[in-house]
């Protein structure tokens, strides 16, 4: 395939995850945090970022090998 699908998935999830995590760490008002007793934006953002980076890692490994 001319474009490995893991690139767009990886880049999009990294960007979204990073935006969400930064927003959660610096901007979230405490308004909705009570429901989860943790900052959902921050931690789910980190989870999305990790998923995104894993996809990018997979794509770059595949392109190096062949």
């Amino acid at each position: 395939m001319d474009l490995d699908i893991r690139w767009p998935i990886g880049l999009l999830f990294s960007a979204m995850g990073a935006a969400l995590a930064i927003y959660g760490a610096f901007f979230t008002s405490s308004q909705k945090i009570w429901r989860f007793w943790f900052d959902l934006d921050l931690w789910w953002g980190v989870a999305m970022l990790i998923f995104g980076l894993a996809m990018i890692w997979g794509a770059s490994r595949a392109s190096r090998h062949g």
Binding site: M16, Y23, T28, I33, L40, W44
Partner: peptide
């Protein structure tokens, strides 16, 4: 449940 930010992910 979703605060600003997560709501964006849900709507997306």
């Amino acid at each position: 449940y979703y605060p600003a930010g997560m709501l964006g992910v849900g709507i997306t």
